[in-house]
């Protein structure tokens, strides 16, 4: 900073650490709860330091679930979440890459019409078209399937716009050079465009993975078979059960399991994550 004010800098650090603590507090409490046996979790006051039951709880959550319920563990839900997140992320990237390529590099009838049609999806979040979309998926027989979980969410204006933006910054001469080298459209797409956009693709993947993993309303609507539940939904189911017999240690372990994959993605791919966030908002 401009002036050398050690006291102010010290104060800033203190305040920042306080802020970090406030932000981390709920997660700390969750983590502590996930390390104690269920008996301890019914005694007031609840512990604020971790206990030694972490792996026992992990085992219960993954393999058995809440005692009152079907005995369905979270492991299956984690797998479902992973599949859904991957399908949504990869699906969105694939169809957006293709349509952005068509819109930027080809002149064809209805080009602008298609563009606006994709644009409109920006204004139709799933929350405002829940019922009719549910009906469509039901009529297509896609309830309780991975396709039903992912496909209705893979049309994306933001991803298409982002790739369009990326393609527009690629110099025209590269296409000309590729044409002189004899590359046709698809060859140009694979050999030049995709490799040149790979950091953008990776950044978008990080964002979309989190988006997909955290989907809640949609899986809630279209899954009724416990085998198709996602982990994020599982938490809510357990919360409902908690009204009668609270097993907070298992619920919080489940919340921890639901949180760890996307949080790890953010922390370990931070650069890509930040790039993805700032680019999709353009």
């Amino acid at each position: 900073m401009i002036e050398n004010r050690p006291l102010l800098t010290f104060f800033s650090h203190v305040m920042l650490l306080l802020g970090v603590a406030v932000i981390a507090l709920p997660v700390w409490i969750m983590f502590v709860a996930a390390t104690h046996p269920d008996v301890r979790m019914t005694q007031v006051p609840l512990p604020i330091l971790p206990g030694g039951y972490f792996f026992e709880n992990l085992d219960i959550a993954l393999n058995k679930g809440l005692s009152g319920q079907s005995g369905q563990g979270v492991a299956r839900m984690l797998l479902n979440s992973l599949v859904m997140a991957m399908l949504i992320a990869c699906g969105k990237i694939a169809i957006s890459l293709l349509s952005a390529f068509a819109i930027v590099y080809f002149k064809f009838p209805f080009r602008m019409f298609f563009f606006w049609m994709i644009f409109i999806t920006l204004m139709l979040p799933v929350e405002v078209r829940i019922l009719p979309t549910y009906e469509v998926v039901a009529n297509l027989g896609m309830l309780d399937s991975y396709w039903g979980l992912s496909i209705p969410l893979i049309a994306s204006a933001t991803a298409t716009f982002m790739f369009r933006q990326v393609f527009l910054t690629i110099p025209d001469e590269l296409l000309e050079a590729a044409r002189i080298d004899g590359a046709g459209p698809m060859r140009f797409f694979w050999d030049i465009l995709i490799p040149m956009s790979r950091t953008n693709i990776a950044a978008l993947f990080v964002i979309l993975f989190i988006f997909g993993w955290n989907q809640y309303l949609w899986p809630l609507l279209i899954t009724s078979e416990p085998e198709m539940y996602t982990v994020v939904m599982g938490i809510k189911q357990m919360l409902e059960a908690a009204e009668q017999a609270p097993e907070w240690n298992v619920i919080m372990m489940t919340a921890l399991l639901a949180m760890v994959p996307p949080v790890c993605v953010v922390i370990f791919m931070q650069t890509l994550f930040v790039k993805g966030l700032t680019e999709t908002e353009k």
Partner: peptide, 15 residues
């Protein structure tokens, strides 16, 4: 690519 030509671009257009 069928014209049996080669071109050098102003900004080189290297991949």
């Amino acid at each position: 690519s069928q014209r049996d030509i080669a071109m050098v671009f102003q900004n080189y257009a290297l991949y």
